[in-house]
Design a binder for these strands. Structure first.
Lengths: 353, 353
DNA sequence: TACGTTAACGTAAGCGCTTACTCATAGACG
DNA sequence: CGTCTATGAGTAAGCGCTTACGTTAACGTA
């Protein structure tokens, strides 16, 4: 048959070896052992003597041989792949997390399969195709999917272990921060600086305050005020949508009210960037007349001199990856890992004059 | 064994059907045809009669059956996966491109495998493991890998079709912009506004100007000046590294020279953001006394009111994905697709007073 | 010495598809 | 009408691994 001839030809042609065509059988033959031993040796499984194993590994190296991933996957039923579902990859949070996740998985020899859900349409599609997604994957990491908010649970993932970062999901592990506490610390920072009229620029909240990131941050803001004996003045709250533009607008509104705030807590750095810009436009010097504190420690925060609360997203991603891997290997489910959110004081906050 | 019992339990529990266990054989049996016909029907291959095909598809739908990807991959030798190699995913350009790529691939039923090369160490690792990467993939997309700069060629990818976005690589297709022309247009915009002392904030260049993005942009800057009869004054060039911080610093230097520029072209928006900040700090009003134009149309550019040259990275990614897919299906190699880079005039440039 | 253990290996049956090849059947054509 | 060609469909041999199970030999232990 032609095919066989071609193969033969290739083999002979390229120094006698067409690497792509080497199989576990060839290695077994070369080492004078069975394919089972090769398979076990190459995967560090027990059941092979020390000397035999050494020889097998050596020969495989020599041939530049690696197990064929597709074949392994079919035969073992494992995919050696972790799925990542997140809304928007042009966006800071998931992109950063992706970096951390990717590096841990690479280390462990796992592939990463990405599902994006930027638009509602894509989100619907994802849910529809969840089964197909899960089939390709041994475990799932969720970022900002709001899955919980819609009453989904980890059951939707067809028995694959699930870990959510930045959100909670019934039946899934979660890597999160204490949003309420972190927000409270941010506001306390302003209070410590002597501010008494402290505004807040909010991100969209869900009905159930205690379940959403922004809801919790708002509660933390109120906690801090109340503890300091300050009143919670609704006119000091301006709603944004998370974007820079909305931050511009929100701060403009706050500056326009009678008795404007001297300090503002923004639920995200991006909105804080907008606020900074609005302050500049309005001729209000920061931090001299207005202190602004953000939340995230976005890549740009340092360059912008923004005081903020640092979310170590990359590390959270790494942890999430380690946790799914552990779950895949069969370790006990974790419920929640809470990450610390330190204050990073820079140049946008100062003592009230 | 417990495991089996559990499974059995599941089966019985969930309406008698554990979907995961359905194979092509079951569908074939249910439809009263051979597995070959099912396989062909489900993949829209010829060789099945209209009526038969309809029935098969209907039954598969009913069972919620889909071909087992791992098995298909092993049997066909195709991976239905495209590889993406890029340096940094926390970063604007690749993240944006990723979005476009991902959406096109999803549409085509392809998976995406990501390789990151943020650090030199990771880059080395990638090259070392290139063979392993390529085995998992039918085609490769390269972003900002500088592969070409190091004398690599598409040969390094083991016969998989390769397309590079934003760079050129021997033997690979490429989706790019005309950096020289775009830079020239940016500077012409400043010239049209009456500026004569026009500075430039550069990104790191390679030895061979004509081969690197920044080199080409610098040439475009010089083209524009010369064409307008303006001299190229080296003291008006400040080197940055692409970061906001370096933009701050670079503009500060330019403002400090005798006869500072009234217009500045920044090779990237991020550096332009830094420049904006530096101008503000220095008390130089933009655009009244200083015009700044960037390059990229970064997500933040609009909110910051930055005039810039728009790179449609998402669309370039989509195109790259379409091109690899076409190459995978066997279409003729393309050499290069050049993307338009329109000027987006916003509020950081104005006529010289 | 006989028997039970344990560890090292080998055997071979899959895993769930794809596809080359074979076989009917049915027009088309002279 | 017989022959040729096209088309629909089926058969079965893989694809390159994994792993349950079987075998063998070595080593106690009673």
């Amino acid at each position: 048959m032609t095919i066989i001839d071609t193969r033969l030809c290739d083999r002979l042609g390229e120094m006698g070896v067409e690497e792509d065509r080497i199989t576990i059988n060839d290695i077994a033959a070369a080492a004078g052992v069975s394919v089972a031993s090769v398979s076990r040796s190459l995967r560090d499984l027990p059941g092979v003597g020390l000397e035999t194993r050494r020889r097998i590994v050596e020969i495989a190296d020599e041939f530049g041989y690696e197990l064929h991933p597709q074949a392994s996957r079919l035969a073992s039923g494992r995919t050696s792949t972790v799925g990542l579902a997140a809304p928007l990859f042009g966006t800071w949070f998931p992109s950063r997390a992706l970096g951390g996740i990717r590096s841990v998985l690479a280390e462990a020899g796992y592939d990463l399969l990405i599902a994006m859900m930027s638009t509602p349409a894509e989100r619907g599609r994802f849910l529809r195709e969840a089964r197909s997604f899960c089939r390709r994957v041994d475990g799932v990491i969720l970022i900002d999917t709001f899955a919980s908010a819609e009453g989904d649970s980890a059951d939707a993932f067809f028995n694959r272990p699930v870990v959510a970062v930045g959100e909670r999901l019934a039946g899934a592990g979660s890597i999160a921060i204490d949003n309420r506490l972190a927000a409270r610390r941010a506001v306390e920072h302003l209070i410590d600086l002597g501010h008494e009229r402290i505004g807040i620029i909010t991100a969209p909240e869900r009905a159930d305050l205690a379940m959403s990131t922004s809801g919790l941050r708002r509660l933390g803001y109120e906690d801090a005020l109340r503890d300091a004996g300050l009143s919670v003045d609704p006119s000091l709250a301006a709603a944004g949508d998370g974007s820079i533009a909305s931050g511009v607008e929100a701060l403009s509104r706050l500056l326009a009210i009678p008795g404007p705030p001297t300090g503002v807590f923004c639920m995200s750095d991006e909105m804080a960037f907008g606020a900074l810009r609005a302050a500049q436009t309005a001729g209000v010097p920061v931090p001299d007349e207005l202190s602004i504190i953000g939340f995230d420690d976005h890549d740009f925060a340092q360059a912008m001199g923004l005081t903020t609360m640092r979310q170590s997203v990359g590390e959270m991603g790494m942890t999430a990856a380690r946790v799914v891997l552990a779950l895949i290997e069969g370790s006990e489910p974790i419920s929640e890992i809470t990450w610390d959110v330190p204050l990073v004081a820079r140049q946008t906050t100062a003592a009230r004059v």
